[in-house]
């Protein structure tokens, strides 16, 4: 039992980290509550599903999947940039405006996928086949790719934010928007870069997690809710907070699954968040002034 909780909690945590990191980043930098966040998971997953048959001539499934995933990620990131410039940027002064436009956008993508494709549930074949037995627990090998991929990406993004020039600008903007503008940082570009990173991260979540899982047009909302809750839990705009929050939530869900009942694994995390909000509204590692 302990082993299972350890492993599945890790898997859940890795997934949540990928989902939440970008969401938190975008809020921290631009104060943008991006309700279209989950939609980027949706479009990446569907792009993979749609493009995959075109590369049927490649016999090696891993290679075929890799090429498809790369193309899908690029398209998703481009879409994120375009929607930022066209829709979010003009409205970024108004909080409610941003909420509405990103909500409408998420709704649009859901309907788009439904219209272009069909409303049925589909399945993408995992690119890592078979099962793995670790600590006496047998689980799909695809999940190993998810955990490893997530750890690498989260490390890379953290390094990027801390070390690179763009990363430093991102941090500067998130600490003080106006001061950053004063010292000559193009805040608009930085915001766009952040939105793109966030789309890339959740896109990777789709690449790693959608295969072996079902995809359907309305799934974006669920991932949005997960990202939103974990971010609030960890503290809006705090990267370490989001990562810590992801794993705590991941384990909380898994423990509920195993020790209480799967029926409650939806409610328990929400209750945890609610309690968190009441006890410590700024989240685990959030900045006090943000709330």
């Amino acid at each position: 039992m302990i082993e299972e909780i350890l492993i599945y909690g890790m898997v859940q945590g890795s997934l949540l980290a990928l989902l939440a990191l970008g969401f938190s980043l975008v809020y921290g930098v631009g104060g943008i509550l991006n309700l279209a966040h989950g939609a980027f998971y949706l479009i990446t997953a569907y792009l993979i599903y749609w493009i995959l048959p075109y590369f049927i001539f490649i016999d090696n499934y891993l290679l075929r999947f890799g090429i498809t995933a790369a193309i899908s990620l690029v398209i998703a990131v481009v879409i994120s940039a375009v929607t930022y410039l066209g829709l979010m940027e003009p409205l970024k002064e108004s909080h409610i405006g941003i909420v509405l436009i990103t909500f409408a956008l998420a709704f649009f993508f859901e309907q788009f996928v439904k219209f272009v494709g069909d409303p049925k549930t589909h399945f993408i074949i995992p690119f890592v086949p078979g099962t793995v037995t670790f600590l006496g627990v047998t689980f799909p090998a695809q999940l190993v790719a998810l955990v490893v991929g997530s750890l690498i990406l989260v490390t890379l993004v953290t390094l990027f934010i801390n070390r690179s020039t763009i990363g430093k600008s991102i941090r500067a903007v998130s600490q003080d928007f106006e001061a950053a503008q004063l010292v000559g940082i193009n805040t608009n570009m930085i915001l766009m870069a952040t939105v793109m990173i966030s789309a890339l991260l959740i896109g990777f979540a789709a690449v790693l997690y959608a295969p072996g899982n079902f995809i359907r047009p309305n799934m974006g909302w669920r991932y949005l809710l997960l990202a939103f809750s974990v971010t609030i839990f960890g503290g809006m705009g705090s990267i370490p907070g989001s990562i810590a929050g992801s794993f705590i939530m991941g384990y909380a869900t898994t423990i509920t699954d195993f020790l209480i009942s799967p029926t409650f694994s939806v409610i328990i995390p929400i209750v945890v968040i609610l309690v968190m909000l009441l006890v410590r509204p700024q989240g685990l590692l959030g900045k006090k002034e943000l709330y």
Partner: peptide, 9 residues
């Protein structure tokens, strides 16, 4: 006590 996105969530 909550505001903005915290209240929303």
């Amino acid at each position: 006590r909550l505001k903005g996105p915290y209240l929303a969530l």
